[in-house]
């Protein structure tokens, strides 16, 4: 998940990035005088999380997750983003950045660098959490009856 130029991987990078970073980058894009058209206003929506239970391998609906999605057109190129939570500004910013990279905007390299840095930070936090958990690995011993 590091190829900013791949639409699907870019989606995941944008979704995992914090809202402030996205908004700062999107402001930079808009400051360059690009033409923006909002195709889908950033609106909180629901995604029903489906899970395959492992016993009978049947799907069921675990519950809904709040996300915010937005879609824009920037200099004729479409952009789409979806972020977790009720985060209208982050979603709109993400959609702008998605379109900007697709359009080969002048700030593409900077956007790519920031998104990769955010992803690396997230991976680092994840590795740390895994390492903390591994530090609590235990081998239980069954106690024999000594009597």
């Amino acid at each position: 998940m590091t190829d900013v130029y791949d639409r699907s991987e870019r989606f995941e990078l944008l979704a995992a990035c914090d809202g402030e970073t996205l908004a700062g980058l999107a402001d930079g894009v808009l400051d360059c005088g690009t033409r923006l058209r909002v195709l889908q206003e950033p609106t909180p929506r629901l995604v029903m999380q489906r899970v395959v239970e492992p016993v009978e391998k049947r799907r069921f609906n675990l519950g809904e997750v709040v996300v915010t999605a937005a879609e824009v057109e920037l200099d004729g190129e479409k952009g789409f983003a979806m972020v977790p939570g009720k985060e209208e500004r982050a979603a709109l910013s993400g959609a702008i950045l998605d379109a900007a990279v697709a359009a080969g905007h002048d700030l593409t390299d900077r956007i790519a660098g920031e998104l990769r840095a955010a992803a690396a930070e997230r991976d680092g936090r994840r590795r740390r959490r895994w390492a903390e958990s591994r530090a609590t690995a235990v081998e239980f011993e069954a106690m024999e009856d000594e009597g």
């Binding site: 899970v51 492992p54 809904e64 996300v67 979806m82 959490r129 895994w130 958990s133």
Partner: peptide, 23 residues
């Protein structure tokens, strides 16, 4: 609050094996 929101759609079904488990 949920009752005021539209549904985007369903997720791709997740397999429990995909879980990043910390316990």
């Amino acid at each position: 609050y949920r009752s005021t929101l539209e549904r985007w759609g369903d997720s791709v079904p997740a397999e429990p094996d995909e879980m990043f488990a910390t316990r």
